[in-house]
Computed example of a mutant assay.
Amino acid sequence: MKVLHIITGLGIGGAEQQLRLLLRHLPLSCEVITLTHPGAVAEGIRADGTPVTHLGMTGNRDLTALPRLTRLIRAGRYDLVHTHLYRACVYGRIAARLAGVRTVVATEHSLGTTTIEGRPLTRGTRALYRGTEKLGSATVAVSDTVAERLRAWGIPGPRIHTVPNGIDAGAFRFDAAARAATRTRLGLPQDAFVVGGVGRLVPSKRFDLLVRAVAGRPGARLLLAGAGPERDALLSLAAGLGAADRIHLLGETGGGDDHGTAPALPALLATVDLFVSASREETFGLAVLEALAAGLPVLYVTCPAIDDLPAADAPGARRIGAGADALAAALRQHQEAGPHRLPVPSAVGHYDIAGTAGRLAELYALAAARP
C-alpha cells in the first residue's frame, strides 16, 4: 500500500512530531505533502528517509492550492490519503476525491469544545469540517474525549475510530549526564528547583499562571519550550513580577534534535524537576506522557491520555484545580519535597508508538477493503 500524508504545516508541534514518529514505525511506503511552513519537522522527516513536498499554500482561502494538490495526488498514484489538521483535512479530502483516491483517512488532533487547533471554533468552520468529512472513509480521534466531541458534531459513530497518540518512551529515559550538561548550558544552578512546561505560547495554554506561580516561589526557575504570540507578554509579566532572571523562554524544541538555542525535548525533561500542564482543555496531553516517561512528577489540569485510564496507571500525575491558588500550593509542596525521579508508570507503555502505528495500519486495511 502506498500512502500519502497531507498536513497543514511541519513546524514544531505535537501533531507534526507525532506524524514524524508514526512514519518511522508504519510498515508502509509513505510520502508527505505539507501545505505550508516546511520547518524543522520537515527536515527531520526527510532525514528519516521519507519524501516531503511543500505545496506553497499562502492561506486558508488560497483556492489555487486545490488543483495543485489534486495533480500531485493523481501523479503519485496513491492507494490511500491520510490528512492531518483542519486545513489539510478540508483541502486534502476534496483533492483526494478529485484525484480518484477512494480511501481517505483523517486524524483529528486538536478539537476542543470551543476551539480547534487553538483558534476559535466558528459555525462556518464547523460546517466546512462536517461537509468535507463526508468525503472521507474514516476519521481518527486521538482520544475518547475527541471522539465524543466528533459525535456531538453529528459525525456518525461508525466512521469514528479512536487511535491514541503514541510515544517512544526510550527516547525520554532519564539521563543524569544530560541533566547536568543542559543546566550548565542554560546557566542554571545544579541544585535549583526547576519547573518545566511545553507547548505553543497561546492564551489557552495558560502559561501566565505558571509564570506567576514560579515567580512567587523564591529560588524556583521556569523553563518554557515553545513559540507563539504570547512570548512578549509572558516576558513582560515575568519582568513585572521581578522574576525575569528566573523565567526562561527557550523557543521551539524538538523531540529528538536540537534547534537553535533550545535543548532537545528529552534533555529538557531531564533538566527539570517538575512538569506542569495548566491548560483547561486538551485533546490528548502528549507532553504529559513524555514527562512521565522521563520519570517526572506531573501536575495537570486536564489530560485525556491520563484521565481515560485508571488512576493507578499514572501515580506520578496529579490532577489539580484550574485556579491559580491550586497551582501555587502544589508547586510549594513539590519544591519543599525536593527533586526526585519516579518509576515510569504503566500509562506510558499503554501509549507505545509501535502499538499506535499497528492500529493505524489495521485501520488502513479495513478502510481500503470497504466497498
Rank of each mutant, 00 (worst) to 15 (best):
G187F: 07
R183H: 11
G187S: 10
L150S: 01
V146T: 13
N165Q: 11
N165W: 06
A171Y: 00
G118L: 13
D168Y: 13
D168W: 13
T114K: 15
N165L: 15
T125E: 01
P158H: 12
L111Q: 05
V146L: 05
K134C: 02
G118D: 13
T145W: 02
T125N: 04
F193W: 08
D175F: 13
L186Y: 12
R159V: 12
I155P: 00
V163F: 09
R102S: 09
F193L: 02
A169C: 09
F172R: 02
T122W: 03
F174G: 02
I160P: 02
T125H: 06
G157Q: 09
G136H: 00
G124F: 08
L121Y: 06
E117M: 00
A180K: 12
L186F: 15
R130V: 03
A141C: 09
T162W: 08
A127I: 03
A177R: 15
K134W: 05
T122R: 12
R126N: 01
E148L: 03
R123C: 04
R123A: 13
T139V: 14
W153H: 09
S143E: 00
Q190G: 04
P164G: 08
S143Q: 00
E148R: 07
T122H: 07
G118Y: 14
T122P: 04
L188N: 15
G187E: 10
A127Y: 01
P156L: 04
I167H: 11
D168G: 11
L188H: 12
A180G: 06
V101L: 06
P164Q: 09
T145L: 10
V194I: 10
A147G: 07
P189C: 06
V140Y: 09
A192Y: 03
R151K: 08
L188S: 14
I116D: 00
P189R: 12
L128S: 08
E148Q: 07
K134Y: 01
V104Q: 04
D175I: 15
I116K: 08
T114I: 14
T184G: 12
E117I: 02
V104D: 01
R149L: 13
R130A: 10
Y129Q: 14
T139G: 02
G112C: 07
V105W: 05
N165P: 04
V101G: 05
T114V: 13
A141G: 08
P189W: 07
A177W: 00
T184D: 11
T113S: 09
V140Q: 08
V163L: 15
G187A: 10
A152E: 10
G187H: 09
T182K: 01
T122C: 04
A178E: 13
I116A: 07
A176R: 15
A147H: 05
T114D: 15
N165R: 10
A176K: 15
I167C: 13
A169N: 07
A171G: 00
D175E: 14
V105A: 08
V146R: 03
P164D: 05
V195L: 03
P164E: 08
A178K: 14
A192C: 01
L150I: 03
V142H: 10
G131W: 05
W153F: 14
W153E: 08
T182P: 02
V101M: 03
H161Q: 15
S110T: 08
R149I: 02
G136S: 10
V101R: 05
L111K: 04
V101Q: 03
A138P: 02
